[in-house]
């Protein structure tokens, strides 16, 4: 290898080969704007030897801010700013670079892929050896890939945490035995309903349901039978109610129902009696049959002001349902009592 000779003027003479090793994406154009020499990577991009002698403008369009002049090689040489050259064959790829005049109208242009690096690597099958050692291209590709990996892990982590959060939330609001809502779940639903009511939403009803003779099932057939009965009770209640209603198990054999389907007292009473009838159907557990009944107290929400204390209203409603339930129990069990009937609420 002959070392580059420095001329007395301080300029450097380099062979095209040596220049290509330093700047694999260089181009030299002659005074007519024809490609005179080019680096190995540029040759790959422009389709090989055939690029030699071709007009620069047959391969590139010059992207400039002001367009009072055309895409002339003079213009390419004249600018001291960054050049942006769009590949005619692949307009999605824009090369960036700068140019210097070599004298006698010849221009040296050095180019690089800016943000279109990954597309270009794919489009022209480029490898590490196609880039100058001083080029940051490989680091950029490495970074992009590392970034995808890290973001992928973070994304997966986020969705796992979200799943865990939802599971925890569902568990915290439901009764593990029956899968019904628990007291907290029901309280949330009633709070929301009460807030909606204050905003002009529909009135609703709350039913307090207590199983009768359930203790005997536990005492005579054991807790497993009791659990089985509770699960069947949950199924029967859910089936009898409308989709928007909520059934919650709030104690051992105690249930609270949020009924959203209207506040007609006669209709609610019929619903309560139907529920009791359903729950009185026999239960079978390991070949043994048992029967229970239920008492229900129902209270209907009263119109409230937007500014009213929702908590207090909820408490009043629950107390009314409790009193109705107590009246039902006292009246001989297996009955449904409306809070309105006992003159309280």
């Amino acid at each position: 290898m002959t070392p580059p000779a420095a001329t007395p003027q301080g300029s450097v003479v380099l062979s095209a080969d040596a220049l290509g090793r330093l700047m694999p994406m260089f181009l030299i154009c002659d005074a007519q704007g024809r490609i005179d020499a080019l680096g190995p990577t540029m040759k790959k991009i422009l389709g090989g030897e055939a690029a030699l002698g071709a007009l620069l403008t047959s391969h590139f369009t010059l992207r400039v801010a002001q367009t009072e002049e055309g895409d002339s090689p003079d213009r390419v040489a004249g600018t001291r700013r960054r050049l942006h050259l769009v590949l005619r064959a692949r307009p999605e790829i824009v090369l960036r670079g700068s140019s210097v005049e070599l004298g006698e109208g010849r221009v040296l242009i050095n180019l690089t892929f800016g943000i279109h690096l990954a597309e270009a690597v794919r489009a022209f099958d480029l490898t590490e050896t196609d880039f100058a050692a001083s080029d940051m291209a490989i680091e950029l590709l490495y970074m992009a890939e590392a970034n995808v990996a890290v973001l992928g892990e973070l994304g997966a982590l986020t969705s796992r945490l979200e799943m865990a959060r939802r599971t925890a939330e569902a568990q915290a609001l439901s009764d593990p035995l029956t899968g019904l809502a628990n007291r907290r779940g029901l309280d949330q639903a009633i709070d929301a309903e009460m807030a909606a009511l204050a905003q002009g939403g529909s009135a609703f009803a709350v039913a307090h349901l207590d199983l009768d003779y359930f203790k005997q099932v536990n005492d005579t057939l054991g807790h497993a039978a009791g659990d089985h009965v509770l699960m069947i009770v949950a199924q029967r209640l859910t089936r009898e109610l409308r989709r928007g209603d909520i059934v919650a198990r709030t104690g051992g054999d105690e249930f609270l129902l949020l009924l959203r389907g209207g506040t007609d007292e006669a209709a609610l009473r019929r619903l309560g009696e139907r529920l009791i009838h359903r729950l009185e159907q026999p239960y079978t557990f390991e070949g043994k049959t048992c029967q229970i009944s239920a008492s229900i107290g129902i209270a209907v929400s009263l119109p409230i002001e937007e500014t009213a204390d929702h908590g207090q209203q909820t408490q009043r409603l629950m107390e009314a349902a409790d009193r109705a339930l107590y009246a039902a129990k006292r009246g001989g069990r297996g009955r449904c009592v409306m809070a309105g009937e006992i003159g309280a609420g």
Binding site: A118, V121, R122, D125, L126, T127, E128, I138, L141, E145, A149, G152, A156
Partner: peptide
Amino acid sequence: FALTAPRSRGAA
């Protein structure tokens, strides 16, 4: 080794 990975790549 290709500098850019195939576009649809399954998780490692």
